[in-house]
Every structure is written in C-alpha cells, then in structure tokens.
Design a protein around this nucleic acid. Structure first.
Lengths: 254, 254
DNA sequence: GTCAATGGTTTGTCCGGACAATCGAACTTC
DNA sequence: GAAGTTCGATTGTCCGGACAAACCATTGAC
C-alpha cells in the first residue's frame, strides 16, 4: 500500500524576495508561521526534509535550518533526527513575555485606561534602593497608577524608577503603558526578575480597587533590567483576583 | 590615554576536546557559562571578537557563534553589531521553567515531602475532559497530594491524567515529583498552558493546609503537553500564600 | 564649536559542502 | 512468529569563506 503522505509545503506558496532587506531566514520562518496559524500546515504533519526544501526555495540548507530553528524555539515545530520536522499539535498561544498590563488588556480587547494617582520624587527606601541599585535615601521617581478595564479597576500599580532615565510625562502615562514609554525612549529591555504571590486586601487597598477588606489580591513584584544590566524599574503591583489572573505558556527548554 | 581593556577570555583556560562526543559548541558554551558564574568574566566586559576567538581555539566561526548564541538565548550575553559581545550585568537566576514544585523545593533545600491523599480512577468532568482532550465521562486518573516542606503543608495538588500513559505507583508518587516520573516513563514534556490566580480559602481548604478560613491562597491551573501535542496532565493546585510565591526570571525575546 | 563625512571594527546573514548520529522500516535469521 | 541486523532517510554538527549592516571614534568642513 503506497503512502500518499506528501510534503505539505509543496502546495504552499513559499518563496523569498531577495531584493528585500528582510533576512531570508526570517521571511521563510514568517511564511511557515502564518501557514501554521492558518491551518495550512496541519498539526502532526511532516515538513519535508531540509535539503529538498532548500533546493526548492533556492536557499542554502543553513538558511532553511535557521528559519526552522526559530520556530522550534517558539515551540511551533519539533525536530527528530532520522524522522523529520513536525508541526506541534499546538494549544500554543504565547509564551510568557515581558509585557505591560496595558498591552495585555488592549490585546484582549478590554479597553484599558489609567488613572494617575501620583508622580513624584521620593527618597529611596531600603527595599527600593536594593532593587534599583542606588543609594538608600537618594531620589527616585515614584509613580502610582490605577489600571481600569471597561471602567472597572483591575490593578493598583506602584513603580519606582531611577532619575534621569527618561521624561516621565503625566499625560503619556495615562494614555499608554510604562514599557512602551521606555522602549520609545531608546531603552532596550532585557530581563526581569518577578515574584508572584497572594494576600488579602487591607481596608485601604479595598477602597482603591473597589473590593471589600479581606478580598483576595494577586501580587506581583518585578525588577526590570535593560541590556546593560541597569535596573530601570521596580514595580509593586496588586491585582483584583476576582478580575485578573496571569495566563501564559511555558516551553521546555531542552 | 591608552585603554588597557584586554580580551578577558585570553586568560581563561578555554579549549575543546575533539575526542569527546560532546559537541564542540556545547563544550565552549559550558566553559563560558561557568566562567561567568565564577566571576572570571566580569559583567559588562567585552568578549573579544568571534573571528579571533575562533582562531585561538582552533574552531570555525560558526561553531563559536553557536556557542555564544546559546548563551545569548539564556540571557547571559548581549551582542551588538559593531561593538562586540558583552557579559550581562546579571541578576540572572533562572528563567521560568516547566518544573515540578517538588524539584523547586528540593533545589531550595526545603526538604520536600508528599502525602498521597487519593489515587483513583474517576469519570472525567467537563472541565477535565476539555483540558485533556478526552470524552466527558471517560475514565481518567485522579491524584490528590499534599506537599510539605519542613513538615509544614505548602500546597494541595490535584492532578488528572489520561489512562494508559504510565504506571502510577503510589510509593513513587510519595517519594518524588510527578514530572520526574513522566520523564522517567519516556514522555518528552514540551509545553504547558498555565493560569495563576488567587482566592481565599474555604473552611475545608483551610483544614487541609493548616490555614484559617478566608486565608489567601495562590492558585495555579496547568495543562501540560508532550512533544506530540497530547495533553499528558491537568493540574489544579492551591498554595498557601503565606508560605509560597512564584519566583522567576523573564527574558525579552527579540 | 558644531555638525557631517569617513573609516575601521564587529556582528549579521548567506553560501556550499562534508561527515556523524539517530530513527524507523524492511529484511534476515533462528 | 520473534528477535536481531542492515540500510535508507533525516537531522546534528562542523568547516571555510564572502559580503552586508551597524556602531563608534576620528577626522574634516563650515
């Protein structure tokens, strides 16, 4: 019985534009990714071997491998030596990224809004100084914001930032997220150290978030670093557990 | 004024063993990683250009690049075109991985223990069936465990698993983590979809975890998939917020 | 003094080739 | 029929080279 299993990439309109400044491997990986998203490459199907694929596209094998590897890193493909490359049966949504709550809510169609509660300079407490790597008592920015979705409070965000990093404009703080402002100021975010916990609301916290005293809160503390290793932000956030939870995908790094 | 900034890798004892079955790029990346951990490569220092490094080690540039790239992916190094490769000023600990609580506690020296509360076969509820991709009402394993650290309860773990995946031995469930058992059974874990939230404890939950009713709990729901896309586990866990929080590192994928 | 042009350094991308390691299936042997 | 063997297929690793793109410091022009 002949196996009618053909390389599913042959029917795809794959092809690269060599006049484009976009790297070839990136063009290919994007085309493959959209094909997977659209279901044109069905989960579990083999991809056809690299050498043949390279020949058909007029690319070298290293270039094709680079494209495939980037999708393997994203968790969309799985390679097996001696077998081939398969599309993962994916419930894959998105790995946990370093995004701001604002972008998350906006992507979910939740119409985020921000109410700026405070934007001042304060002496750094011991905790803040340790996180930001500055001297205790030295001046740092302190921002407090209330984040709303559909007009309802979702989270209380308190952030401390070193001075002189970029312009903290009150208007812009209300119209977008902090991370977007930092990126726009030329800061390259690199990594963050996070701690997620829970506690019950005090009376004051309850007032702020429209919850009762004793209501469950999700807490997140985060120190963010840029690619030079500087701490650029320290955040201490509380979320209404009734309105928010962290959703994310984890990949096994092998 | 002359800059005495020399390539710090020259003083390192770097070298590869070509008779070893370990890939050359892996040998190099490990040597670099340990050098960074030991502080022999200080944060912020340049690494010396790839071509010269390759020549010194008797390797090709692609191999050296592969080694460096793996450390960039781990967040230990940063590359800049026209500048060089720098060691990140790292607070880097560990990116969020797909680990079991058992391993986490053990790594932290917390002497974990497990009390097996239940290990039965039950018909799948709608929620479990949807998560595991089986028919509602079909039989699935149900495990309930209490996780202790230093003899104190830390978390209540309820897991559902499809039948026929591997042998669920009660003794082994008490002596190690679930993920270790799965890996030992030849299952290749690939990814997981997680949701982290908070709520207050009911009276029954309080009893189990040695907390009062109304105490804050951290909740985590997780569906884990293997590399074929099968759901291999669905977990519904509650942690004592007073004793546990999630600590992890996030990297910006660029 | 300030700004623009220049050039050197370094990483980014891409090529073509070679051999090894691993997997699965077909085949052989008992 | 079952177990071991062989073999083709596919990815993993490694090499050497070439040019492009981006960054930084220096130089030059105004």
């Amino acid at each position: 019985m002949p196996k009618p299993e053909v390389d599913p990439t042959v029917s795809l309109r794959l092809g690269v534009d060599r006049t484009s400044p976009v790297p070839l491997y990136f063009q290919l990986s994007q085309q493959l990714e959209t094909a997977i998203e659209r279901g044109e490459l069905t989960p579990g199907s083999l991809l056809g071997n690299e050498i043949e694929l390279a020949g058909r596209l007029g690319l070298s094998r290293p270039t094709v491998r680079q494209a495939i590897q980037s999708l393997v890193d994203k968790g969309l493909l799985v390679r097996r030596r001696g077998v081939g490359t398969q599309v993962v049966h994916s419930q894959v949504k998105r790995p946990m990224e370093l995004t701001s709550l604002y972008d998350d809510l906006e992507a979910a169609g939740q119409r985020p809004a921000t109410r700026l509660l405070a934007n001042t300079l304060v002496p750094a407490s011991a905790e803040v100084a340790a996180a930001l790597g500055v001297a205790e008592g030295s001046e740092v920015h302190r921002i407090e914001r209330l984040r709303l979705a559909h007009g309802e409070p979702v989270a209380h965000l308190r952030n401390h930032l070193p001075v002189g990093l970029f312009d903290l404009d009150g208007d812009r703080l209300e119209s977008t997220g902090l991370y977007r402002l930092m990126r726009a100021a030329g800061i390259t975010l690199h990594s963050a150290r996070q701690s997620v916990g829970a506690r019950t609301a005090t009376a004051a916290e309850g007032d702020r978030l429209d919850e009762r005293e004793g209501a469950p809160l999700l807490t997140m503390r985060r120190t963010t670093f840029d690619d030079t290793g500087r701490a650029v932000e320290y955040g201490d956030h509380t979320y209404r557990a009734s309105r928010y939870s962290f959703e994310f995908q984890l990949l096994v790094r092998s």
